[in-house]
Write a protein that binds this DNA or RNA. Structure first.
Length: 672
DNA sequence: AGTGTATAT
């Protein structure tokens, strides 16, 4: 890990500071005592406190794995699980995968010797399907719980349930913010459960660890602004001309704003006049290809100041060294699910104070920094304290299916950390009922519901895939299901060449729609472009995404085989007479309809779509082949509202009659 | 008519 900026030994002193000097080392005894004494320990520690790397090692040395148990540490992101595991393995002096390992989807780097295991919280949830009480673990540490992701919230609820049956289990919840009290209160036993011997306060404890952050000076605007992109650009140039060295990190809400801001900065650089360093604006958002993202991590050239213009990705998911200045526009794009309409909405919302703090902290990682907030101090005080938990603004159908499969009897009265609005839960149950995954008492159906829950797919897609053998199109549907999980990342425009991307897309396009078009892409990739990044480049395809599709397809295939559904299975006798002579594309289209009947629409002469009830106008997403072509009835994979327009993505043509044939109950009411 | 914050199984 050479660093160009470092002279001499090439070592960065802070990185090599022995763990014993971390603030957390002083708390070691108190920590171990607390974990020994109380079932629940809440750790409040800022970035740099060493909590993630040190606590598992303390527990290991204190004997928490001496009976053969494992210490689990969950992370919200795959990258964190792998990198932290590598770091701890190095500190302990073992090979990764031996005493210290990690497990993420498609990668299990653990062995029989593994005592500390880092994994994503989503994967630990999956493990509960085979080990409901998580018996192999003596301690489960849930890291970054303050982010309130859907899976860490659910995980905490289930851990609380498990603890009643396993009093010896220890739960450590680690959080960077002030939510500690809420977490502790959540784990406290109900009044009637608390015996005299065990009062509420005996149940858990909060421990705070000081971080090693440098101070960040915060500046607010005196007056609010209406155009924060313009103001952000001005601030960038002001910092560049008046402040000392240090890169700039500018938070905006999305790709369009980022590109606008970069154009504006580039346009104004000549006006600065001579005598200043070079200013190098760089975009950062998840939609960029990996090589385009790499630029932001490279140290700037001599006499150059980087300006990284980023979405929320730089708030927690990605860390860039050398940032001295942060500019925070005060907004973020958040996904919201509208249970009434059954659509997701991507809307620009004010950030929470917790987010604003996290953004500011990005300036103080290596030295004292400054943060410029493009809003007034009084506006700051009116911001919500924390971001609305994901569980209160998501489509809950997948979660409810999973909880039901884990044996949760009543998903409405389930012990949520933050209760989702009942509308969300009701809508989820309705969806699952219409798909046949639960019965009219909201109980899991067998085998259909249980099988759907076993698959790592959204319920509608799981239903369609499980129906594939009935249409004799299992190999095709496996591919389509795998391609759907790429969520629109199949095509990329290399070097920003949009026209070339459109042209490449047309090459694979078929009149039946996007699903079969993506099937063609996958087939071409496997036969011609597999392990050939250059072929992908020529066809504007995302190599990494297609490799992932291959992994997903293989995983789905294995999972179905375990359910007794083999890829080569022939059409069941009862169906042969009906689907035997059909073309493969018709089988696939019918099969998709059995899962996505609720996502039906019909094209109007002007090229927009209408819902079956005619209540809303839907726009074809420009990534669809029907952006340029005509269609009649279609089903679509996804629906989302942005900028007051509802877009549908991944469309396939169907016959209206199929809706009634495959979903008679769902469409009966509207037919009359 | 012209597009998607981020993450996970």
């Amino acid at each position: 890990m050479a660093d160009d900026e470092d002279e001499g030994l090439g070592l960065i002193p802070e990185l090599y500071k022995p763990p014993a000097l971390l603030p957390i080392a002083q708390l070691k005894d108190a920590l171990l005592y607390t974990i020994e004494t109380y079932p629940v320990t809440i750790i409040v520690g800022e970035t740099g406190s060493g909590k993630t790397t040190q606590i598992p090692q303390f527990l290991l040395k204190a004997g928490w794995t001496s009976d053969g148990s494992v210490i689990a540490v969950t992370q919200p992101r795959r990258i964190a699980a792998t990198s932290v595991a590598a770091r701890v393995a190095e500190e302990i002096g073992c090979q990764l995968g031996q005493e210290v390992g990690y497990s993420i989807r498609f990668e299990d780097v653990t062995s029989a010797k593994t005592q500390i295991k880092f994994l994503t919280d989503g994967l630990l949830l999956r493990e509960m399907l085979v080990d409901p009480l998580l018996k192999r673990y003596s301690v489960v540490m849930v890291d970054e719980a303050h982010e309130r992701s859907l899976s860490s919230d659910i995980l905490l609820s289930l851990l609380k349930k498990i603890m009643r049956k396993r009093p010896e289990l220890r739960v450590v919840v680690s959080s960077a913010t002030i939510e500690a009290e809420k977490f502790l209160e959540f784990f406290a036993p109900e009044e009637e459960e608390a015996t005299n011997k065990q009062a509420k306060s005996d149940f858990g404890h909060i421990i705070s660890i000081e971080g090693r952050m440098h101070p960040v000076e915060i500046q607010y605007l005196a007056e609010p602004v209406s155009d924060y992109v313009e103001r952000a650009v001005q601030t960038v140039l002001d910092i560049h001309t008046t402040e000392e060295k240090g890169d700039i990190l500018l938070f905006l809400t999305g790709r369009e704003e980022i590109e606008d801001a970069i154009d504006m900065i580039t346009d104004r650089i000549p006006d600065l006049g001579p005598g200043y360093q070079t200013l190098q604006p760089l975009p950062l958002y998840a939609g960029l290809s990996t090589d385009q993202q790499m630029y932001v991590f490279q140290p700037a050239a001599e006499n150059t100041r980087k300006v990284i213009v980023s979405t929320n990705i730089a708030e927690a998911s990605v860390t860039i060294d050398g940032i001295g200045y942060v500019i925070d526009c005060g907004f973020v794009k958040l996904r919201n699910y509208d249970p009434g309409l059954g659509i997701e909405r991507l809307s620009v919302c004010p950030v929470s104070r917790a987010s604003a703090t996290q953004r500011a902290g990005r300036a103080g990682r290596t030295r004292p920094g400054k943060c410029f907030r493009l809003y007034t101090e009084s506006a700051y005080s009116t911001l919500p304290e924390t971001t609305f938990p994901e569980i209160q603004r998501s489509n809950l159908a997948p979660v409810i299916l999973q909880l039901t499969n884990l044996g949760i009897q009543n998903v409405v009265r389930f012990d949520y950390l933050s209760r989702p609005p009942s509308q969300l839960v009701i809508r989820a149950i309705d969806t699952l009922y219409s798909l046949g995954a639960v019965d009219d008492q909201a109980r899991l159906t067998k085998p259909l519901g249980a099988r759907m829950a076993d698959l790592p797919l959204e319920p509608m897609l799981a239903k369609a895939l499980l129906n594939a053998p009935n249409f004799g199109c299992l190999p095709e549907m496996l591919t389509i299901a795998a391609m759907m999980t790429l969520q629109g990342t199949t095509f990329v425009s290399h070097d920003g060449n949009k026209k070339q991307e459109d042209k490449a897309k047309r090459r694979f396009a078929v009149e039946e729609g996007d699903h079969i078009t993506l099937y063609n892409v996958y087939e071409a990739f496997v036969s011609q472009g597999k392990k050939d990044a250059q072929w992908c480049r020529e066809h504007s395809l995302n190599f990494k995404a297609l490799v992932k599709a291959m992994s997903v397809r293989k995983q789905l295939k294995n999972q179905l085989e375990r359910l007794g559904i083999a890829e080569t299975v022939s059409i069941p006798a009862a169906h042969v007479s009906r689907v035997g002579p059909m073309s493969m594309t018709e089988r696939v289209r019918r099969c998709l309809t059995t899962g996505f009947f609720a996502h039906a629409a019909r094209m109007k002469p002007d090229g927009t779509f209408q819902t079956p009830s005619g209540s809303a106008t839907l726009y074809v997403h420009p990534s669809s082949i029907f952006f340029h072509r005509k269609a009649d009835w279609v089903i679509y994979h996804e629906i989302m509202e942005t900028k007051n327009k509802i877009y549908i993505r991944d469309l396939t043509t169907i016959e209206m009659d199929w809706l009634v044939e495959y979903a008679p109950e769902y469409y009966r009411v509207r037919q009359r």
